[in-house]
Design a protein around this nucleic acid. Sequence first.
DNA 1: GAGCACTGC
Length: 696
Amino acid sequence: MPEEAGFPPAKRFRPGCGPPGGRVVMLLTAGGGGCGGRRQQSAQAQPAASPYPEAVERQRRSLPIFPARGQLLAQLRNLDSAVLIGETGSGKTTQLPQYLYEGGIGRQGVIAVTQPRRVAAISLATRVSDEKRTELGKLVGYTVRFDDVTSEDTRIKFLTDGMLLREAISDSLLRKYSCVVLDEAHERTVHTDVLFGVVKAAQKRRKELGKLPLKVIVMSATMDVDLFSQYFNGAPVLYLEGRQHPIQVFYTKEPQQDYLHAALVSVFQIHQEAPASQDILVFLTGQEEIEAMSKTCRDIAKHLPDGCPSMLILPLYASLPYAQQLRVFQGAPKGCRKVIISTNIAETSITIAGIKYVVDTGMVKAKKYNPDSGLEVLAVQRVSKTQAWQRTGRAGREDSGICYRLYTEDEFEKFEKMTVPEIQRCNLASVLLQLLAMRVPDVLTFDFMSKPSPDHIRAALAQLDLLGALEHKDDQLSLTPVGRKMAAFPLEPRFAKTILLSPKFHCTEEILTIVSLLSVDSVLYNPPSRRDEVQAVRKKFVSSEGDHITLLNIYRTFRSLGGNKDWCRDNFVNSKNMTLVAEVRAQLRDICLKMSMPMVSSRGDVESVRRCLAHSLFMSAAELQPDGSYVTTDTRQPVAIHPSSVLFHCRPACVVYTELLHTSKCYMRGLCVVDADWLYEAAPDYFRRKLRAARD
DNA sequence: GAGCACTGC
């Protein structure tokens, strides 16, 4: 046990174990109420396909959910809505859809199972179609962006929650579905949260119209499901035990001033005491921290006493190139310990086998949104209790585990109970555009499970209004024809508007490229250790007109060379993201063609591209002040050019930006040099109002 | 003058 951090004796617990509150039906399971299930295998860790049907069947029958099958189906058959708590490894996600189908619920319509992430939707569909011994895309299929593997025969369909939401735009009653299972509901992504409201409304409306009832099942891995139950008219809560292994939790005796130092000490204490085969997972907040800690660990590991096992230090964060991310899944050489130093990506998105120890700093970098200023603040903050438990649970996936919390138990008690749902801390413009496209009667009173504040909603409506998407008629809010077209694009409303404006400036081809580049993770790869090299190589693409034009140059060169991977490596371009850009671009171009938009190119004329950006991003502009600083044109907020911008060392008189980010300062990211006159031309009324407001 | 948690359509 690390002594310097001062850990008192451990507390034993099972994540998710304990009596659930509220109206709960305990379902009969094999584990039978005690802690520490009898079986050692885990549902998700099983190999996907088995050539032997009996083996597949035996495996299915061995899952904790199996003994509850009859009871579960009997309950669900009679319910409109239900909440199902299933612990990790209970088998709920793979088995429940099959039970529903076998119970005849898929006979009159498709069973939809939503997932927050693409990879989960794809791998679950693959797994379940294997279990049913059918070809993927027949009985069992999946739909995610760019990839629809379903057919007329499909009865069980896994899809991302965002995808079901998009389907709801063309059919808000979700007519093709007999049942919607909302999985991972505890994560409370914006898409899941909007879907709660959409399925609830569809369920009610279908009942009123005497149509096929819509069954809604909300699945959560955590206990705090009262909100779900209340929201769905007091839906019963069904509780299913899982196969999580016991985990010992240690808190520090004293609060830690320096969580990085405490993490470092803990890692090496564990390293000196535990067998080399037991891996460690450390949660930190961001790339810079993780790289620095990795380097320090490697340096220290070189000077360890004889007899101490060696250490394989693996950083893990989303912007790390894919090949390097994959290294965390490979086993360490014999006699060597894996130490994975990760962001919260390892909390939910990436599951690593063989983790025995979790070191939780209790910190996370997360975005907050201020609707008044439209400002996103990215700040290091405390995790919530549910997040801390999620991290702890990562230690007990295959066997019992140990979690060191680098904070005191008193501190933990003061953590927020739950992470604030994303819908209350993001820009709502996209969400409201989608709801309006579904012809929701009144977005201001829409039945959100956790309501965003009225100011928050009004700010988003104001933004949509500026983009020309809204129509007010007899106190009713609806979409203009432009607004309706905007909703067809899988983009932020302002970028959809940029595309719709582009024919006027004869630069649709260029704008499609730029918008695609903006809507995926950066194609620029910036390894901190090779900064000078990166700068030298990138020079040939840099445009004095800003980041958008620079990106356009990079994409053009990439295409002219036929999408060459070697070129990407040599030019510090992330080839995976670049390939994705091409896919996004093709999808957006398709949507344009369906709208009969003319496909025009401005050829070499980048001024028209900049004019187009000025006309759609006029509300995100900043002007140079006499003292060399910048202020935004809308709220006179002092801002600075982000160091990642190609204009970082320049002083253009007027720019539009694609993002404001508050870290140590308020930074503009993604800049384009524009003419102040263009902005005024784009929205004369808006700027006249601003001028008047400034005078008063 | 110096920096970017994580998804998704």
